[in-house]
Write a protein that binds this DNA or RNA. Structure first.
Lengths: 342, 342
DNA sequence: CTGAAAGCGCTTACAG
DNA sequence: CTGAAAGCGCTTACAG
C-alpha cells in the first residue's frame, strides 16, 4: 500500500492552494459554495477523505476527542451495569456533538497512555481516580468533569448518596431488634473480601461507598440500631462472585443478620441467590436492599427494594456539562424504590 | 493556563539536544542509562510528561491507538452483554500491549469521525458494518480483523453458528409434532418487531443470525419439523423490550408454539418472563433455548438451555490477531449447554 | 553516544 | 474570495 494522498497533492491536482482545500473541509464560509463542492467532489474522486488527523490536531491544537477516565480497568468497567449505562449516555451526547470517545483507566500509567493523555480536548472522570493520571491531566489545564466524586472546584456530577441511603435504611429497618449488615465495595484498597475492623471505620476515604455507609448508619441510628463494623463487608469490586462470598459469610454466622443493606443491585441480587440456596425466605427470614435499580433488579421475582439512579441520564449530563463548559457542582436525582425484598 | 512546555524547551534547559530527549522517551538504547535517567527526572521536574501525542503521531506515522468499530451505536453496544464481554477481552489485550482503545460505530459517518478514522493503527470490526466506513478504512490499507463476519481474505474470527444451531435444534425438538418458533435480530433492516414473510426467507443477508436460522432449520428438518416464516420473528435489536413483544406475539396466537428457539439469551430470558406472566410452565408448556450463555442465563432458576461462547476469550483472540498480524480465518469454539428450559 | 537539520501534513493569519 | 508562507512539536537518518 503506497502512501496516502495528501492535501498538498490534491490541491496541486485540482489546481487550488492547500488553504482552499483545508477551508473546503473546515471553514465553509471561507469560499464559494461552487468551489467548495468542486473541491470536495474532486477529493472524493482522488480518494482523499479529509485532513490527516494527527496533522490537523497538531496544527489546530484540537482533536475532537473526549477521554472517559475510568477509576477501574476497562475490562472490569464493561462488566459493571452502571458503568455501561453511564457510557451509554456519554456516548450518545458525544456522537450528537461529533466527538470521538477514548476510554482510559486511571489504574494504568504506561508510557503509551501518558502520551495519549495529551490527545483529548477534555476529560470525564468517572469515580475516584487511582493512579497519577489525575494530577498529570489537571496540569494540562483542559476541561474536566468529575462524576461520583468532587475535587476542589472542578465541575462535578454527583448523587445524594448519604441522603438516599439514610432514607433507605429508615424504610427497611423495622425496629431496634433488627440485626443489620452491609455489603459494599471499595471501603478499603484491599483486593479481598473482608469484614471491616473498628479501626477501618475511623479512616473513611473519598469513595462514594463511605457516604452510603454513613447514610445507612444515620438511618439505622434513627431507628435505634447500630451497624457494627464486623457486619460490614468490604468487596474489592462490584462483582457477583465476591458478593456471594460476602453473603455466605454473613448468612452462615452465628448471629445471622435479618437485613442486609447492599451498595448495589448486583450485590443484592447475589445475596438473594445465596439466600435461596440456603432456603431462607425473602423477606420473612431475610430482607435485602440494593442500589441503582438496574434492569435485572426489576426482573427479580420479588422485585428488589433499591434506590433508582438514571445512569444514562447521568452520562448524558456529564458529557453535556463538559461540552458546554459548565463550571458548577450538580446533583442527579435519586428515588427510593420500595419493592418486595424488604 | 499558559502553553505547555515542549521538548525543545526542556532540551534547552537541560542542555541537551531534542534528539536526546526524544530518545530518552522512545529509544532507551540510543543513550546511556545515566543520561536517560537524568533527562527523564529533569523532565518530570519541569512538568514535561513526554512527547506531544499528535506531533509524535504525525512524525512517526503511528498512534498506538486501536479502533473497535461496532456495527451498532456505541450506546446500544454498551447495553449488549456479548458486546461488553468482547470489549472486556479486547481492552485487556490492548492494555497489556500499551495500546489505546478508540470506540466508533459504523452507523456514524460525520466529518469528525471520518477524520478520526485516520488516527488508529489498526481496526477490529465487530459485526457486519453498516455505513461507508468499512470501505474507507479498507482503502487506508491498515491492519484489520473482522469478528462475526468475513470479508474476502481479511483475517476473521467467527463462531460455527450454523453447526451449533443445528445441534441445538436437534437436542431441543422432541418429535415432528412440535410447533417450533424462532426469535432473532437483524434478519432484516427494519427497525420494528415483525414476522418474516415467505419472501424474506429468500433474501438472507450476511448477518450471523441468518446462519443461525439456517442451522435451526436444518436441525428441525432432521427431526421432521418445518419452521414456517410466520413463526420467525425479526427484532431490530437484541433488547429485552423487543423480545417481550415478540414473545407475546407468539404465545398469544391461536397455534401456540411449544418450543421457541431464541438467537440470544437476552431474548430467551425475556420469553421466560412473558411465559411466567401468562402462567405457562417451562418446560412443560413451553420450551425455550438461548444463545451465548451469559451470566444471567446461569442465574435463572430453571437454568437456560443455550449455546456457550466465550465472549472475553473472543475479544482477546481478536485483539491478539490484530496485534500479531495473523492473516488467517479463525473459529472460536462453542458448546451446547443443555439445562432446564428444553 | 550526541547534535543539527529536514520534514511529517496540516491550519491560519495575512497580503492581495 | 484566494494563495504563499510560517510553524505546530516532534522523530529520525546522518554526520561527527
Amino acid at each position: 500500500m503506497e502512501k496516502a494522498i495528501s492535501q498538498k497533492d490534491v490541491a496541486k491536482i485540482i489546481g487550488v492552494s492547500t488553504a482552499t482545500v483545508s477551508n473546503a473541509f473546515n471553514r465553509p464560509d471561507q469560499l464559494s459554495t461552487e468551489l467548495r463542492q468542486r473541491v470536495l467532489s474532486e477529493c472524493a474522486k482522488l480518494g482523499y477523505s479529509g485532513p490527516h488527523f494527527a496533522a490537523r490536531s497538531l496544527r489546530s491544537g484540537r482533536s475532537d476527542v473526549v477521554c472517559v477516565m475510568l477509576s477501574d480497568t476497562l475490562s472490569y468497567s464493561f462488566s459493571d451495569p452502571m458503568a455501561n449505562l453511564l457510557l451509554e449516555g456519554i456516548s450518545d451526547v458525544l456522537a450528537e456533538n461529533q466527538k470521538q470517545m477514548l476510554l482510559m483507566s486511571s489504574t494504568i500509567s504506561s508510557d503509551a497512555q501518558i502520551r495519549a493523555e495529551t490527545l483529548p480536548d477534555g476529560f470525564i472522570f468517572y469515580g475516584t481516580p487511582r493512579g497519577s493520571s489525575f494530577d498529570r491531566i489537571l496540569s494540562l489545564g483542559k476541561p474536566c468533569v468529575t462524576v461520583d466524586f468532587t475535587y476542589k472546584n472542578l465541575p462535578s456530577l454527583n448523587v445524594d448518596n448519604y441522603g438516599a441511603c439514610c432514607e433507605l435504611a429508615k424504610a427497611a429497618i423495622r425496629d431496634k431488634n433488627d440485626l443489620v449488615a452491609v455489603i459494599g465495595m471499595r471501603f478499603l484498597t484491599a483486593s479481598i473480601v473482608k469484614r471491616l475492623s473498628k479501626q477501618d471505620m475511623s479512616l473513611p476515604s473519598k469513595e462514594i461507598t463511605w457516604s452510603r455507609l454513613l447514610g445507612f448508619k444515620a438511618g439505622a441510628s434513627d431507628k435505634g440500631v447500630d451497624i457494627v463494623s464486623d457486619n460490614i463487608i468490604h468487596l474489592h469490586r462490584n462483582k457477583p462472585k465476591e458478593a456471594e462470598i460476602a453473603a455466605r459469610l454473613l448468612l452462615m454466622q452465628e448471629q445471622r443478620p435479618n437485613l442486609i443493606l447492599c451498595m448495589s443491585d448486583v450485590i443484592a441480587l447475589a445475596v438473594c441467590r445465596v439466600a435461596q440456596q440456603l432456603n431462607l425466605r425473602i423477606p420473612e427470614d431475610l430482607r435485602v436492599t440494593g442500589f441503582d435499580d438496574i434492569e435485572e433488579a426489576r426482573h427479580a421475582k420479588e422485585g428488589l427494594t433499591t434506590v433508582f439512579q438514571n445512569g444514562i441520564e447521568k452520562g448524558r449530563e456529564a458529557a453535556t456539562m463538559l461540552l458546554e463548559g459548565v463550571t458548577e457542582h450538580r446533583k442527579v436525582p435519586v428515588e427510593l424504590r420500595l419493592r418486595g425484598t424488604h
